[in-house]
Each structure stands twice: as structure tokens, then as C-alpha cells.
Design a protein around this nucleic acid. Structure first.
Length: 587
RNA sequence: GGUCACGUAGCUCAAAUGGAUAGAGCAACUGCCUUCUAAGCAGUAGGUUACAGGUUCAAAUCCUGUCGUGAUCACCA
């Protein structure tokens, strides 16, 4: 077997330089050959024809012949319209197979090691994580996995919004109606417990607003008595009153314990946690500095603004008239502090698209301030998760929490598992299947697109799902076991191996793995990987159903399939793990 | 109203960034378990890629306009 091949792409490039004597070589447009045409990889000739000023047919023939020659007829070619299709021959597939069984095939390093900080989750400390957080967390953690896998150093960070009027709302409700209860004696998860009081606050506030409307005093709707009380509490908090601070610490602790539990269930973790209460003052200095430099301006009431109208934005508030911070103030501060503290090459914010404008302005302000690292900031924006009826934020207390969804998935998996599985009781598998289905459902969709979530239909365990992929994987594991029981191991590369069309289809898909992973990491998009892993599963099941893979009669081909199974297994496992999904050996 | 996204099969999503005859899965219908796991495989049906123009060898993809959906334009977070 000839195993000194270099890639077709490289050879094509070489041929153009050689034949047309052009340096540098024009940009080449390759694509994997469409299913409807014969071939493996395709060069699009139209742009080349334009640049070389030669007819398509001639270019195609020249390159095709050169490549065929170079590969000693292990690669054929055909020209269809303006497309030059390269058709791999048997031995080239064998070469690919050999390449793919090497561990290096999976160790993809796309660029030099970089320090990348990725901020995600970033919840408010007053209620449980919900559907929206779930998408955020899954995208963030999966991208962190992918970036790490291709060789970067990753710092996963969450910023907890533990300060402000919204926190005081749950505090005041607990003070008035909590009667000293706590999550333990109430048998509730801490974040749900606190969230209950936050919802209670909103209910009471709403009642009071309605009363005001009846009394025709609706102009006072922002001054309900309970809201006033919350404001007083905020003031006390700002003044660091001991009792208020202690209550605040106590209730936050409940919430954090609840978050930790949810994170643990989801299998995500953070290297760092920042608290808004620790850093909300940092930005003020910067704002003052910018004011002194004449970049910002002060209104009569003492508030500080930036005028970005020339840049196509509006005027933006940076500091309130009472000199307290707004979101922008602290985002300026944290960004600056992060670059001072850590040597980071990239800072990714995973934040919903409702804040697109906020981040555009944030980056613009930092640019105005002259920080050289502004181009290292990236807002990874994703669309909302909506319920079929419409918005999910709408009615208070009616949101789907992450915990309830995780629990529901576990139940669905259990029900299905019991009727299907060969195994007896196996609690851990319900988790892997249920959670996997949830994660896959969220990650297979391009982040920038909306997800419409049907709670009643919940999430499928068949079709284009993680369950299908997990099932495929456990089939592979089972086949491997069978192989070791009945077959001798031989070196297939010392023999003449002939691949069937099914085999070729599989190898064709498998060899795309590095480019998919590369693209996923470059685009910061786990959905590409998710969809690819599904394709791999599908093509395997097609092979499996049509060929007897492992048998004692044909040792050579059983060994060949053993290699193919091994590669598929690796791709499925690595790929799914990067999405945060575990695999099961037996289902 | 200004700005920014998005609009693909009945439903949920793809389509490697401008390439060939737009692909999957649900749901519906038809076949396939005496054979390595049927949570599977094969097949049928389903499309004027919201609409109208434009750019070029080539448009779901880029530009313009219209319509629809959502987000945002707070001394909220």
C-alpha cells in the first residue's frame, strides 16, 4: 500500500503553480462533493477560470490529470459543468483509514495556545435558573470545552448579580412573610425558596398597583408601599447596615447553594466567580477619568454621559446623578480589571441578543477610552428560548426552571428506558439519556436562531437526538466486544482490502471530523459539531443495517470494520463530550 | 417611529459563508427482527427558501424595497 499521499487540496495547489506558473496560487474553493455526484472532494472551477483567464474545461483537465498522475491513479477525476470532482480510489480510502486510526487525527490544534476568558451564566441572585440560563450555560460551557480541546487555555467565569433593587425585593418579602423559615425546614432548594419570595413581592406589588388604579392614583404605580420598603432596604444595604447585610448574605448563600446543585447536575463548573457587589464601584474611577479627559460630559444634575451620536448610537448614561453605578459603569470596570489581572488574548461574553446594543456601546466606549485590547472582546449573542404561546418572560412565577426540566427529562428517560432496555435497573443511565436529550436539543440549533420549546411535548428520545447517537455508540461498543470474542487481530494494512460503497460513504464522512471541529471552534458554534455527530451516527447505522460487520468467517474484514468502528466510536464520544453529553456502553 | 436580528416541507431544524437537482428529524403512509442491540434500516409523500426587484457564469445566502416576527432605543437589571 502506498501511504505517502499528501492531501488532494495540497496537490491541486501545487498543480496550479506548476502548470500556470502563478505565485501565489489563487484562492481555491473546495467543497465536499454533493451526494448526487460521484466523488469525494470538489474544486469549483468558475473563479479559477476567471483569475487564470483560461477556459474551465482546460483548467479542469490539466489539474485533474496532474492530480491523477501524482496519486498514481489512486484518485480519479471528472468534470461536471464547472466542477472538478476528485474520486478517491480504493487504496486512497485505505490510506485515509490508516491516517484516522492514529491518535493524532483527534488532537487538533488550530492555533497557538491562547488564554481565553469566557463569561457565561451570570444569573441574578434572587431566583432559580430558568430556560434562558440553560441555553446560555450550555452554549458557554460547550464552547469552553471546544476551545480547550483545540489547545487553548480557558478561564470560565460567571458574574453574579447579587446587588440592587431586585435582590431587595426578595429580601423584603422574606422579612415580612418569611417568619424565619429557611430552605432546610421548608424542604426547598435554596434558589427556589428565595425565588418564591421574589414572586411574592411581585404579587403584592401588583395588588397594590391595582388598588391604586381603583383609587385613580395610578400615577403612583411606581410608589407602592412595598416597593418603597424595598428601596429603603437598598439604601440600608448601600450604607452597609449590619442587619441588612447579614440577611443579604444569608439569603444569597441559599441561592448559591441552589445554583451549585444545578450546575453540578448539568456537569458545568466555573474557574472563577465574580460578584457584582465586589466590583460595582471599580468603573466609577474610569468614568471620572474619561470625564477629566473630556470624553464624557456632565449634566447639571451631576449625571455623567457619553455622546455617541456621531458613531450612530445615542447618548448613554454612565453614572447616575446620585453617583451610583449603572450596568455600563460596572461592565467598563470589570473589562478593564480583567485585562489587568489576567493575561488574556480573548474575552467572550455569552449574553442574550437582547443586549446586543449594550455590548456595541460598551465596546465603543472602551475604544474611545483608548484601550488597545478592544478587538479582543467578543459578544457571543444567542436568541431566546420561547414557549409556543409566545414570550417566556411574561407572567411572573410561570417560568420553566432548569431544575424542573432536568427532573422531567430524567422521568421521561426512565419510562422509556424501562420498556426498551436490555439492562435492568440503572439509575445513572436515565440521567445520561435525559440530560443528553436536553443538551442536544438546545445545542443542535445555531445560537443566533430562536428556539421554540414545547414543554408538553418535551424532548424526543428518538430521531435527531442525543439518544439516537448514544444508542449508536452502545451498538458500537457491543460490536467491539463481539469482535474481541470471536476474531484474531491482524494487520489489515498488509493485505489487499476492497471497500464497498457503504464503507466508502462512511470513510468519506469520518475524514471531515477535523475540519468540522476547526470550524466549530473558529465560529464559536457547537451546533456544527452537534449536527455532524448526528451525520456520523446516521451513516454508521446505514452501514450496520446493510453489512454484517463482525463475524468469525471473515477475519480480515472484521478487522477492517474494527478500525472503522473504533474511529466512529472516538468521534462520537469526543464530539458528544464536547457538547457536555456522556455516552453509555450499553443501552 | 429609529436601529439590529430573523422569516426554509404541516411542525422542529440543516445547508462548511456565493456553488451543482435546498437536506434531516417529527407527524402520515409502505416494507424489513429465526441473523452483530428494531431507541434501528429502506421507501412514499411533502418546497416558487415570506413577497417584489437587482447584482453575476451561479443567490436560501449579497444589495434595495414591501410585509411579518422578535429584540432594543430607561438615572431597570
Amino acid at each position: 500500500m502506498n501511504d505517502n499521499f499528501q492531501s488532494v487540496e495540497k496537490t491541486v495547489k501545487e498543480s496550479i503553480i506548476h502548470i500556470y506558473n502563478t505565485i501565489p496560487c489563487p484562492k481555491l474553493y473546495f467543497q465536499y462533493t454533493k451526494k448526487t455526484y460521484k466523488g469525494d472532494i470538489t474544486l469549483v472551477l468558475f473563479p479559477l477560470s476567471k483569475q487564470l483567464h483560461r477556459p474551465i474545461k482546460e483548467i479542469g483537465e490539466n489539474i485533474g490529470l496532474y492530480v491523477m498522475e501524482k496519486f498514481k491513479k489512486n484518485v480519479f477525476y471528472s468534470i461536471v459543468g464547472g466542477f472538478l470532482n476528485f474520486i478517491y480510489q480504493n487504496d486512497y480510502y485505505l490510506f485515509l483509514l490508516k491516517k484516522m486510526i492514529h491518535p493524532r487525527f483527534y488532537q487538533i490544534t488550530i492555533d497557538k495556545t491562547k488564554n481565553i476568558m469566557i463569561e457565561y451564566s451570570s444569573p441574578n441572585a434572587n431566583k432559580p435558573l430558568h430556560l434562558g440560563h440553560l441555553r446560555n450555560i450550555l452554549i458557554g460551557s460547550s464552547i469552553a470545552n471546544i476551545l480547550k480541546f483545540v489547545g487553548n487555555h480557558i478561564i470560565q467565569i460567571q458574574m453574579i448579580n447579587d446587588r440592587g433593587i431586585h435582590i431587595c425585593k426578595s429580601m423584603i418579602a422574606w422579612k415580612k412573610f418569611g417568619h424565619g423559615k429557611n430552605p432546610t425546614n421548608n424542604k426547598m432548594k435554596g434558589d427556589h425558596f428565595v425565588g418564591k419570595y421574589y414572586n411574592l413581592f411581585n404579587q403584592i406589588h401588583q395588588q397594590e398597583v391595582e388598588e391604586l388604579i381603583q383609587k385613580k392614583q395610578e400615577n403612583q404605580r411606581l410608589d407602592t408601599s412595598i416597593l418603597k420598603e424595598a428601596r429603603i432596604l437598598l439604601k440600608k444595604w448601600e450604607e452597609k447596615e449590619v442587619e441588612t447585610r447579614n440577611l443579604w448574605k444569608k439569603m444569597n448563600r441559599w441561592v448559591y447553594d441552589g445554583f451549585s446543585e444545578t450546575y453540578k447536575k448539568l456537569g458545568v463548573y466555573f474557574d472563577k466567580t465574580e460578584y457584582e457587589s465586589n466590583i460595582y464601584k471599580i468603573g466609577k474611577k474610569i468614568v471620572q477619568k474619561g470625564l477629566n479627559q473630556g470624553l464624557f460630559f456632565k449634566k447639571e444634575d451631576g449625571s455623567i454621559w457619553i455622546d455617541l451620536e456621531k458613531e450612530g448610537f445615542d447618548k448613554k448614561l454612565l453614572l447616575r446623578s446620585d453617583q451610583t453605578s449603572v450596568y455600563m459603569t460596572q461592565d467598563l470596570g470589570t473589562a478593564i480589571e480583567r485585562f489587568q489581572k489576567y493575561n488574556i488574548h480573548k474575552l467572550i461574553y455569552v449574553v442574550g441578543n437582547e443586549q446586543n446594543y449594550h455590548f456595541q456601546v460598551l465596546f465603543k466606549i472602551l475604544k474611545c477610552l483608548g484601550f488597545p485590547w478592544v478587538h479582543k472582546l467578543y459578544h457571543l449573542s444567542y436568541d431566546m428560548v420561547t414557549l409556543p404561546g409566545g414570550k417566556m418572560k411574561s407572567r411572573e412565577g410561570n417560568v420553566v426552571t432548569a431544575d424542573s426540566l432536568i427532573k422531567k427529562m430524567h422521568e421521561i428517560a426512565k419510562k422509556r428506558f424501562l420498556t426498551r432496555s436490555k439492562k435492568t435497573e440503572y439509575e445513572e443511565s436515565y440521567n445520561i439519556i435525559g440530560l443528553g436529550a436536553l443538551k442536544y436539543h438546545f445545542l443542535k440549533v445555531d445560537p443566533k436562531k430562536e428556539i421554540i420549546f414545547h414543554p408538553e411535548k418535551s424532548i424526543d428520545l428518538k430521531g435527531k437526538t442525543s439518544t439516537y447517537i448514544q444508542y449508536t455508540y452502545s451498538r458500537i461498543r457491543s460490536l467491539e466486544k463481539r469482535f474481541y470474542n470471536i476474531c484474531k487481530i491482524i494487520n489489515v494494512f498488509c493485505h489487499k482490502v476492497l471497500f464497498s460503497e457503504y464503507d466508502k460513504k462512511v470513510i468519506k464522512i469520518l475524514q471531515q471530523y477535523p475540519s468540522i471541529l476547526k470550524k466549530s471552534s473558529k465560529d464559536l458554534n457547537p451546533s456544527l459539531l452537534a449536527n455532524y455527530v448526528y451525520d456520523v451516527s446516521k451513516i454508521f447505522n446505514n452501514l450496520y443495517q446493510n453489512k454484517r460487520l463482525i463475524n468469525s468467517v471473515n477475519t480480515l474484514y472484521s478487522n477492517v470494520y474494527m478500525h472503522i468502528l473504533h474511529i466512529i466510536g472516538n468521534i462520537l464520544k469526543y464530539g458528544m463530550n464536547l457538547l457536555g453529553i456522556n455516552m453509555i456502553d450499553q443501552m
